[in-house]
Write a protein that binds this DNA or RNA. Structure first.
Lengths: 196, 196
DNA sequence: CCCGTTACCTACTCCGGGTAAGTTACCCGC
DNA sequence: GCGGGTAACTTACCCGGAGTAGGTAACGGG
């Protein structure tokens, strides 16, 4: 088998196994076995267990980024951008729940990996911040930065929560997010206090 | 040294070391050494490395819960509840950043630990959901549930982000959160589109 | 047919989580 | 003061899994 093919296969298997068992409980031996290959091959390709996880994450994150970016590119109206981005995001997590849920849910641990996760988040937040600045240019920079974090944190947690609740679809989750982002709690408060 | 004293000391040391090195990179031997005690003592007290982390987390989470609960109890006005809760939360994270940041930031890994973290979150979300239902009773149950997750996720991420930005105080973070929760992006959009 | 390269394996080391069995020190009734 | 029970503590170990050294087998070009 060629190097590239083997690498792909290893990533597929690793993603699967990490998803099943979680990072800690996954042994390199098992991944090697399932690939029908021996451990040193994994190390030649990825250097370490962390490296392997890292490679999996990068692949998933790249895919996620592309999916959301493309989805958002199709919209012109600000509200529609938000909506399409959210739908794409939650849809992706839903369809890749086996492997991707681990990245959100389980923790990981190795410092290098966290750095990579932060970078991936930075990339995603760049998207969000870009949207925010273009469509709410009045907002000061610090507010944009903070709101970007808020939106990302909220999205990740909601995605995680959604994976445990089959009755909540990706569209539902997207709607919760867009509604909340749009006007927060005020719709439910306005008629009681008029504070809006 | 008495059992209770020793246990306290072990938790203090463990919290410290976990905070410094992160979960993975921390060895039970090091914690034992720093306690001036041998490894089996740790195991007698906490059963496993996970158990030790779990105990640390429970202690921190309990403290966090009490702090936020007390802060919120002092308020009567809905907006004030939100505000006080947020200030208490971000203030706590700020002051306990060394040890507590790890719980938010680093991943962890062991499944049992994640379950405990979820329970702790459930406790916190109970607080939030309670507030939401009492002060926005018009909102349907599913919206309350989803918004609870959104608020928690947003808070955790913002807290994490704040730890890396010394210029952002706990009050700033709390303000970002309350503003966003209150009316989302609409204040920045309203004057452009009138959609608010 | 030889030689270099590339995919690959066996057989190890080492570290760290976890444990078995023993040792000291203290407290109690006699 | 002295057996004896108990509770804090130790040394010395096992074992699984991450990571590695060094060797083999097949293939493609001259």
């Amino acid at each position: 088998m060629s190097r590239a093919e083997r690498r792909r296969q290893m990533l597929d298997v690793a993603e699967q196994v990490f998803g099943e068992r979680g990072y800690q409980a996954t042994s390199m031996d098992e991944i090697a076995d399932r690939c029908g290959v021996s451990k040193p091959m994994l190390y030649e390709h990825f250097g370490s267990k962390d490296g392997l996880l890292l490679a999996c994450m990068r692949r998933s994150k790249t895919e996620l980024f592309e999916v959301t970016q493309k989805a958002m590119a199709q919209a012109t109206d600000p509200a529609d951008i938000l909506w399409r981005g959210m739908v794409a995001y939650f849809g992706f997590v839903e369809s890749h729940s086996a492997s991707f849920a681990m990245i959100l849910r389980e923790p990981i641990g190795p410092p290098e990996t966290m750095k990579a996760l932060d970078e991936a988040r930075a990339q995603q937040s760049g998207l969000i911040a870009g949207v925010l600045t273009t469509f709410v240019p009045d907002a000061p920079a610090d507010v944009v930065a903070a709101y970007t974090q808020i939106i990302m944190g909220a999205s990740e947690r909601l995605a995680q929560w959604q994976t445990g609740r089959p009755d909540v679809t990706a569209e539902d989750a997207a709607r919760y997010m867009t509604d909340f982002c749009w006007s927060g709690l005020s719709p439910y408060i306005a008629d009681r206090k008029g504070t809006g």
